[in-house]
Write a protein that binds this DNA or RNA. Structure first.
Lengths: 220, 220
DNA sequence: GTCAACTCTGACGAACTAGTCATTTATTCC
DNA sequence: GGAATAAATGACTAGTTCGTCAGAGTTGAC
């Protein structure tokens, strides 16, 4: 287990130096991918943004795809952790869990456009639906269907459509084309898709959202 | 007006030769873009697939973006024409128009995966939502809202979410992950988003779909 | 202080790509 | 048939990007 593995505290100055370089590359990659798109980004773009020599890149990653995967994993884990903690107290109401997951994810991506654009532009590796409705969200949709709160045959189909709507909504929002309360609209839409009655859907989707800043925990 | 303009019949052999080259490039470009994605495709890929020398490309298009636009326009116009003709007889029922547009577009993209992947991968230039809900679809949604058949505040928001769901659905379907009747699910989803009662939505979305093959008209 | 191990550095070569242009080929008109 | 016009061809240049590697810089152990 080298110094790269999460959880292993850097013991000495040498390890910290290595980690610093790696972290600079990861952070720069997220920004570059977000602003230019993955395909248009070159490894030089990343190393220049990280203020690191080109050769150093290959000390840490094999290719552009490798660092993309690493950034995506980091991002995904970070958001999933925050969502899980946030929805812990409302486990008994799947509708509320779904609404909060969707709204919180969307808001996080809107408040931090670098994060938002990265998620959109890393499309093949990470999808907004998978972030907001990852293992947990799917589980709650399944629970809702079993308990009769939701009505929908195919969980994957529902997740696909909700995720796609979330992606499109986020894109238009980041382009400045939609009202600020789009997150509530998305949540209401998802609940209606799952056959929650209109009145309930709007009520749940419109509840005030706990203002957490979970993603600030591991900003370097 | 040169021989490139649609509608002007090629008069002589020289014009036909030029048109043949241009058509070969357009068709090859659609296939190459569909199979590799736009960014990964080079102009050489296109000319090789078209069995045409590299220099010839620049007799017809200025750049990759130019031919991408041309293919997208062609595709869009083709689908829009077919949809317009198909929905002509049901102009008085916006719900039915929306359902038929969505289902037909999705089916066309599924039956012709080259078309489907092209639409998905030309993302910035053409979007599935814009195809299925172009000027006509938006007009019908607006009509439905005015007539009280639909309930939704923001037409753009609705189109964005429906279009995003359609994109995601098509992608998963082309990857082979969803059942064949996904087109009906999408239509039902869209109608429910617009607050059409569940029973009506399912009934309209499940109606048998007229089997047209409009896109076969200008296959070369 | 010295040495071994490790990381960082940036110049370099190989491979690829866009766009150009002089030449060849096809077609039309006389 | 022959000249004129226009399109097709593919070799070529210039510029980019990748991935490597020998040398310089840091660090920790002794």
């Amino acid at each position: 287990m080298g110094p790269d593995m999460p959880g292993s505290e850097p013991r000495n100055r040498a390890d910290r130096r290595r980690l610093r370089t790696r972290a600079a590359l990861l952070s720069a990659a997220r920004e570059v991918f977000a602003s230019q798109g993955v395909d248009a980004s070159t490894i030089q773009d990343i190393t220049e943004a990280a203020d690191v020599a080109k050769g150093s890149f290959y000390n840490h990653f094999d290719s552009k795809e490798a660092i993309l995967r690493a950034v995506a994993e980091e991002t995904l884990a970070e958001l999933a952790r925050a969502l899980d903690a946030l929805t812990e107290p409302m486990r008994d109401d799947p509708a509320r869990v779904i609404a909060v997951c969707l709204r919180h994810t969307l808001r996080a991506c809107i408040e931090d456009p670098t994060l938002g654009w990265f998620v959109l532009r890393a499309g093949d590796v990470i999808a907004l639906g998978d972030v907001a409705l990852g293992a947990y969200g799917r589980r709650d949709i399944r629970r809702g269907i079993e308990s009769g709160r939701f009505r929908f045959d195919d969980v994957e189909l529902a997740c696909t459509m909700i995720g796609g709507a979330a992606d499109a909504l986020l894109r238009r929002r980041l382009e400045g084309a939609l009202p600020p309360d789009a997150d509530a609209a998305l949540a209401a839409h998802a609940l209606r898709l799952l056959s929650v009655p209109d009145a309930d859907a709007y009520a749940i989707a419109g509840e005030p959202l706990a203002p957490i800043h979970a993603s600030g925990a591991d900003r370097v």
